[in-house]
């Protein structure tokens, strides 16, 4: 059954995985993902540009990155999509990557995370392609910031 009010705010990946583990139907998992997406703050309108658009996504996704001047640098991400399930995936991506150093980002096994969440099975190939296009972009920024 669909839950009336799932607790959707996850502050860490562990929390996310724990919550996700409790959900056993595809309906609940999608609902959780959609709810997660709702928590992602929208990008400021000036960031909705062609340059920030992630190519390879079926729906529109915009991703901005900010690298801090600190040592080591920290990469902060913000992203938005016009599709709700994609927004949920974006939320997971932000949890995994945003606020981490380039080394941490490059060392992180994102495929393993999505496997654990069982998304890769559900996601269509075209959607996975879009997702990994986002991952690619973040990893490229991390590589440049090394």
């Amino acid at each position: 059954m669909l839950s009336e009010n799932t607790m959707t705010t996850c502050s860490s990946l562990d929390e996310l995985l724990e919550t996700f583990d409790l959900l056993d139907s595809w309906e609940e998992r999608y609902q959780f993902l959609i709810d997660l997406g709702r928590e992602v703050p929208p990008l400021p309108p000036e960031d909705i540009t062609e340059e920030n658009r992630v190519q390879g996504c079926q729906s529109n996704v915009w991703l901005t990155t900010h690298v801090t001047d600190s040592v080591p640098p920290i990469i902060e991400l913000a992203a938005q999509s016009d599709a709700q399930v994609v927004k949920g995936l974006v939320a997971v991506l932000l949890l995994a990557y945003s606020g981490h150093t380039p080394e941490e980002i490059l060392a992180f096994d994102i495929k393993d995370l999505f496997n654990k969440l069982g998304f890769t099975k559900h996601l269509s190939r075209s959607r996975s392609n879009g997702l990994f296009a986002m991952v690619q972009r973040v990893q490229n920024v991390a590589r440049e910031a090394l």
């Binding site: 079926q58 599709a83 709700q84 399930v85 994609v86």
Partner: peptide
């Protein structure tokens, strides 16, 4: 309203209904 066509098609696919989004 409130559902992107791609998301909607994906949820329909989960239910065995093949439609095309895009």
């Amino acid at each position: 309203d409130g559902m992107h066509a791609n998301d909607l098609a994906e949820i329909l696919d989960q239910q065995g209904v093949a439609v095309r989004p895009g």
